[in-house]
Design a protein around this nucleic acid. Structure first.
Lengths: 137, 137
DNA sequence: GTGCTTGCAAAGCTTTTGCAGACCA
DNA sequence: TGGTCTGCAAAAGCTTTGCAAGCAC
């Protein structure tokens, strides 16, 4: 796992990765985004895409939707919204609050998905890691 | 991705995997659980642990907490509760509703975590996959 | 007996990392 | 100029899968 850090340099690569992701309404994988970004910057490497996505995620500029075993998906829309994911094919769609009824017994009303489960997860720093990051400053 | 299916046989392996996971208060990885299960069944294979965890998850008997790039974590407690995960060290802890204030501006009150983000995700079958599974019956 | 399940090991895939050169501030 | 960042390619690491034998029902 990496150390939390702020972006230091706004390189061309980083800007393009962020811009292209923000343009999309979908939830692309790193590989998907790599293909898209390469149209504007053919020499960028996949490793750089990964490194920048990680950094942007740590800075709260993008969302990272991790998938079991498979690829992570990224979301350039950081405004409050929810997701629904197909357990079968992996497709991810956005949900707005009005599409959801209750958190304890959630039912997705308008998406057409057959909902089997839900998960509310917070992320941040545990007490130990938070202390360590404070001491590192 | 696998086809959704119900468990057909309650093998010794499957029972032990489920029992041991249910006993734990932690959120073990497949590898963690493999170590634990091997104490009761030394000949079980890691592949079998994975296969059973996947099947149990699909049957709604356990939760699967996927981690970006790293290992998945599993949770034998399927009652409604939330999680908080450290972005730095990856530790996962349980949260109860009284520890959380609001979904739109969430703050974890009693965990000691410094919260940087949250995510509400539903899982299930998209319209196409749901139709396919109905037709398969 | 049928066909789902297992153990083993190899393969598959996504993501991470080392390094030397390039670049931003 | 100094510390970051990139490209490339190899390595890492988790998870999946093929196959023959075994087991549940």
């Amino acid at each position: 796992m990496h150390t939390a850090q702020k972006s230091q340099r706004m390189t061309r690569q980083r800007r393009v990765v962020l811009e292209e992701l923000k343009k999309l309404k979908t939830h692309p994988s790193a590989e998907d985004l790599y293909s898209i970004v390469r149209e504007k910057m053919p020499t960028i490497s996949l490793g750089t895409v990964y490194r920048n996505l990680d950094l942007l995620w740590r800075n709260g500029q993008i969302l990272k939707l991790d998938m079991a075993g498979g690829q992570c998906r990224y979301d350039g829309d950081v405004s409050p919204h929810y997701h629904v994911r197909c357990m079968e094919c992996g497709i991810i769609e956005d949900l707005t609050p009005d599409m959801v009824r209750g958190v304890d017994e959630p039912v997705v009303l308008k998406s057409g998905f057959k909902v089997e489960g839900w998960r509310l997860e917070f992320s941040g720093l545990c007490p130990a890691c938070n202390l360590a990051s404070l001491l590192a400053d």
